[in-house]
């Protein structure tokens, strides 16, 4: 019985914190895909850049970790504004294949640049010592770090929920996801809205990359290594649906953790099998197509 409770606590804490990181990284993609239907395989690159920037700020400039996270998040948001205006804007009307190719190309460039700047190995952790302590929770030692990640994730969920439901920006965003041309006709500047949403999403991905270090270590191939898990959340969430993105991220985190915990050898499969079955089950009357 004790074993069961302690296992479940472990899975809950580790799964949820992992899910929160996945949520932070993928929510931006869920929103931008909902808005512009653009297939962005380079989204993980923003997370990687955010993570690298944060560790570089801490290690080279001796910045406080929490401050570095904020600086990295804002810098990546600004960078993504430029990239969106300069490059992404060109591909909204192009074919799926073109979108895939361009974004893979951007991810390649990011990987190569990260390697050039920081070397090919996993960069050492810069998480502050205060987070590596443990607290006892339901008969199990839990890292402070995990609780910190869950807290950050919850704060972002609440903030996003407030933005979505209570601000004009959120209302415009919801309208534009449902029907961009109608929203445009009603006087909403969809293009500007999209740029802002893109920056917000990329900033959150950078946040995820920075605080998620303990679960997704930073290395140059980061944008590809975690591509599958990000795309899983996006494909399962449906276009621009924040609530289901949060639920699915956490479900993916918990299922993956539980799978690896109970079946160490074959655990990595469970999430893939689950996703394939789910997507195939949706073929008729798919929620992925409902709004398109």
């Amino acid at each position: 019985m004790d074993y069961l409770v302690s296992s479940l606590t472990f899975i809950a804490i580790y799964g949820v914190s992992y899910g929160m990181v996945i949520f932070l990284i993928s929510i931006g993609l869920v929103i931008t895909m909902g808005l512009m239907r653009v297939i962005n395989l380079a989204h993980g690159a923003f997370a990687a850049i955010g993570g690298y920037l944060c560790t570089a700020l801490v290690s080279s400039y001796k910045l406080n970790f929490y401050l570095a996270v904020v600086v990295a998040t804002l810098s990546v948001a600004v960078l993504s504004l430029i990239v969106e205006r300069g490059i992404y804007r060109q591909i909204y009307r192009k074919s799926e294949l073109d979108q895939v190719l361009l974004t893979i190309g951007l991810a390649f460039i990011t990987v190569a640049s990260l390697n050039f700047l920081f070397g090919p190995n996993v960069v050492p952790s810069q998480l502050p010592a205060t987070l590596s302590g443990t607290v006892e929770l339901l008969g199990r030692d839990v890292q402070m770090y995990r609780l910190f990640v869950v807290a950050v994730g919850l704060a972002v969920v609440v903030a996003l929920w407030a933005i979505f439901n209570w601000t004009m920006f959120g209302a415009g965003l919801r309208a534009a996801v449902d029907n961009p041309s109608m929203a445009q006709a009603a006087g909403i500047d969809v293009s500007r809205l999209f740029t802002l949403a893109f920056a917000l999403g990329s900033g959150l991905a950078a946040l995820g990359g920075a605080v998620g270090y303990g679960m997704l270590p930073l290395e140059p191939l980061y944008p590809f290594k975690y591509l599958i898990i990000i795309m899983i959340v996006v494909a399962l969430s449906g276009f621009g649906n924040m609530r289901s993105a949060a639920a699915i991220s956490i479900a993916v985190g918990v299922v993956d953790t539980a799978g690896r915990y109970f079946f160490p050898t074959y655990g990595a499969f469970i999430i893939y099998v689950f996703v394939i079955l789910y997507l195939l089950a949706q073929i008729e009357g798919s929620p992925l197509r409902r709004k398109s």
Binding site: F269, L279, I283
Partner: peptide
């Protein structure tokens, strides 16, 4: 017959996941 009813992102996702499953299977 199942896969090719999907298009766009879901199709890419399922093929990507199938590829990953095959790789992991061969690895294990």
């Amino acid at each position: 017959p199942l896969l090719l009813r999907l298009t766009g992102l879901p199709l890419m996702m399922v093929t990507l996941a199938l590829g990953a499953v095959m790789f992991e299977a061969a690895n294990k």
